[in-house]
Amino acid sequence: MLFEHFLGAEARRKRLLPRAPEGAVRDFLEIPFPHYRTPLDRVPILALDFETTGLNPVRDHILSIGAVVVERLEIQLATAYHQVICTEGALHEAGVIVHHITDDHKAQGEALERVLPELLQQMAGKALLVHYAPVERRFLQQTCLRLYGMAPVFPIIDTMEIARRRLDQRTALYSPQDLRLFNLRGRHNLPRYKAHNALNDAIATAELLLAELELKQLAKPPALGTLTLPPWSR
């Protein structure tokens, strides 16, 4: 069934492509997504994390973007990417405390209009990896819609979803808290990171993916399709 979801993503990409406006979105959609049967060790993956002012993609803003490539199931720190975004309006105080991004930092940031094309270029041909997909997906779609007039489709692996399915197969009950990135990492003997920024969280998510895969104790890496999400979910 999950294969079909991913099949769906590829099908939607092909459907959207002719209608896509010239520029970043079109360039992104032109490159095929990795095939759903590809074993994960041969799928280029981009672990992604946004720090945002809130959860509403229309009202709230992206504060910073962190990303790192996972190739051959290894996190390639050479590709580590961190970008602070400058947005209009003062930062919400609560958000500042969580993300440690002050107005001063923000002033050094780049406008999202300039950052997004290079990010889409990075994402092209790769599977995205996030922990709790709705935030990144919605912010990506909303931003593309605002900037380019079209919200493309994104093939996403969600570590929270992987963990949820694993926990669902057990008889023991779990609380939603158990699915938080921090708590899941603890279960896998992954280190506690002190700093919380988008890049650290992207790396943390990528490490969690590696740990979840190892937990399955598979002889071979699973096919991409078994892990990706239906593009229309939520």
Partner: peptide, 20 residues
């Protein structure tokens, strides 16, 4: 140096070097 690092995760019972 940190820019050249790749990160791996291995479960108990595996061996080094990792597969692949």
């Amino acid at each position: 140096v940190s820019r050249k690092i790749t990160i791996r995760y291995l479960r108990r019972g595996r061996s080094l070097p990792p597969l692949g």
